[in-house]
């Protein structure tokens, strides 16, 4: 692993900003020790994220999609340091921030920020908005208190469509959409390059969601921000992303450029996800629902975790776990795709 590198301004303005290799995050959900002793119950390890590998390009948006419990939020939390990964390597701008034995997280902490799902839970109800937005600036010691700080906070509030007056109010005085604007202002306060957005609009109404998505795109254009965007809503993902990673039961099953992904996904699970989006064009036409649900992550199926729901599964899928392989310029973890049993055009 590399020795403590020096933080400096980014040398290049393109290329990979964040590189994640073999990221693992396991949770020990075993019964208490005495129960294990006396009842002979085994240890139980929940593999929330198992061997996730992906790159995020500078200035672009990578979206992670998947059903609840697939591990997408755990990935986000590992990247910003809210969870300590069980294994794997995270590199930010060529600085190894987490790998076995080394931890240079503090060096890059102010360069990445997170926007959370629930704007009602992620803002301290007892702080005024001014202090909420100023907190990262104070915490990282970026600007000394005084006129400069006040000016900077007002600038941030203005940037997200609020006024300087709003800084004097408390979070409860704002609607959900306005609170999410405050979250964005707070996230931008330390001049980050990388924003991790964990379902930023899923708690909002559609008309407000449109406002927030438009704002996030404008900010990306203005500041060259890089987003890791997490969502279960594929139409939102379509609107925001440059590339898309699909997760299923803790593993990435497909990762491709958004254009290719939405034109014709490779993995049968991706096809299922795309099929199940309600469309405003097919009025009165029911979606073709695929049977089955996400299996219990404590005892994932053998082989490919998706095989119980997959119409193309064969014996190999049931016994051997597929790894991510390059297919048509993207990556997919599927024996069927590799063996050419499933083509993009084939519909489920």
């Amino acid at each position: 692993m590399s020795d403590a590198p020096v933080i400096g301004p980014a040398m290049t303005k393109s290329g990979t900003l964040m590189r994640v290799e073999g990221l693992k995050r396991y949770f020990d959900v075993s019964p208490p020790l005495l129960n294990r002793w006396f009842e002979g119950r085994p240890r139980q390890i929940l593999k929330a994220v198992d061997d996730a590998t992906f790159d995020v390009e500078r200035g672009k948006t990578l979206s992670l999609v998947g059903e609840s419990g697939c591990g997408k939020s755990t990935v986000a939390r590992c990247l910003v340091g809210l969870h300590k990964p069980t294994g794997g390597k995270i590199e930010f701008d060529d600085i190894v921030v987490t790998a076995s034995g080394t931890d240079h997280f503090a060096q890059v902490r102010h360069r990445m920020q997170m926007i959370f799902q629930d704007p009602f839970a992620s803002l301290n109800p007892r702080w005024r908005v001014f202090n909420i937005v100023a907190e990262p600036i104070r915490a990282f010691g970026l600007i000394d208190a005084g006129v400069a700080l006040t000016r900077r906070v007002h600038e941030l509030l203005d940037l997200v469509g609020l006024t300087a007056e709003d800084g004097k109010k408390y979070p409860h005085e704002f609607s959900g959409g306005q609170r999410q604007r405050i979250s964005i202002a707070r996230a931008l306060a330390s001049n980050p390059e990388f924003l991790i957005c964990d379902e930023p609009t899923s708690a909002l109404d559609v008309s407000v969601q449109a406002q927030i998505l438009n704002l996030m795109r404008d900010l990306q254009d203005e500041f060259g921000l890089t987003y890791l965007f997490i969502s279960h809503d594929l139409s939102v993902v379509y609107h925001m992303s440059d590339s898309v990673g699909v997760m299923y039961l803790g593993r990435i099953v497909e990762i491709r450029s958004a254009a290719e992904f939405f034109a014709g996904p490779l993995h049968p699970y991706s096809q299922l996800l795309l099929e199940t989006i309600p469309s405003l064009e097919n009025i009165g036409v029911a979606r073709a629902p695929l049977a089955g649900e996400v299996p219990n992550p404590l005892s994932p199926p053998t082989g490919c975790a998706f095989h119980p729901r997959c119409p193309f599964a064969n014996d190999r899928c049931r016994s051997e776990r597929p790894s991510l392989r390059e297919v048509n310029g993207g990556l997919a973890a599927c024996h069927g795709v590799e063996e050419n049993r499933i083509s993009e055009t084939q519909q489920l």
Partner: peptide, 11 residues
């Protein structure tokens, strides 16, 4: 519910 389950329930 998740979208894939949503489709099942609506159907």
């Amino acid at each position: 519910l998740d979208v894939s389950i949503q489709a099942q329930i609506i159907a």
